[in-house]
């Protein structure tokens, strides 16, 4: 019966000891230990989260880079294409202008040639007229050096005038 009869002394001391131990441990042991555990768990969770976030950021960054690269590439292509068209246009324009210019030059050359020809023709005509006059004068002079020829000539003139 002794075994199952609780003694007052032990009850008193157990209660007192337990409560003192509880108060001491709560203040000086569990508070810092549980706090440290909580903190560590929180920091681990945060680190994991940060890592996950960094990973995601990396991915978005990568994607952005890819996009940027793509954009740069297309930009380059566009610039090249534009440059090509501009160059082509320039070449074409130059060609056209050259053709035009040459046409103009040809036209003016033809004009000049025509003018020169005209002038030459006039010159030739003048020269011929002058030569024929000289020849005629020389002939006349030769013809009129004797009397009979003069009279013949005058007679022919007279005839001509009469006929008129």
């Amino acid at each position: 019966m002794d075994l199952v009869t609780p003694g007052v002394g032990l009850i008193f001391w157990t209660a007192l000891t337990f409560i003192i131990v509880l108060l001491i441990l709560r203040r000086f042991a569990w508070k810092p230990i549980l706090g440290a555990l909580d903190e560590r768990e929180k920091s681990i969770a945060e680190s994991l989260e940060a890592a996950e976030k960094a990973k995601q950021e990396m991915a978005t960054l990568n994607l952005e880079n890819q996009k940027l690269l793509q954009e740069a590439k297309s930009e380059r292509e566009k610039i090249l294409r534009d440059a090509k068209t501009v160059a082509e246009r320039l070449v074409n324009e130059a060609k056209e202008r050259a053709i035009e210019e040459s046409n103009r030059i040809i036209a003016s050359a033809q004009e000049a040639i025509r003018n020169e020809k005209q002038a030459a023709m006039t010159e030739v005509r003048n020269q011929v007229a002058h030569l024929s006059l000289t020849i005629a004068e020389k002939l006349l002079r030769n013809e009129l050096s004797n009397k009979s020829t003069q009279i013949d000539l005058a007679k022919s003139f007279m005839n001509e005038i009469k006929e008129n």
Binding site: G9, W13, T17, V21, F28
Partner: peptide, 25 residues
């Protein structure tokens, strides 16, 4: 309310856990 054998042993136990966990803290 004597400090019997059980009470003394309990005090030792209490000191052990107080020492153990405060040093752990």
């Amino acid at each position: 309310i004597s400090i019997t054998k059980n009470v003394a042993s309990m005090f030792i136990g209490a000191l052990i856990i107080i020492w153990l966990f405060t040093s752990l803290a």
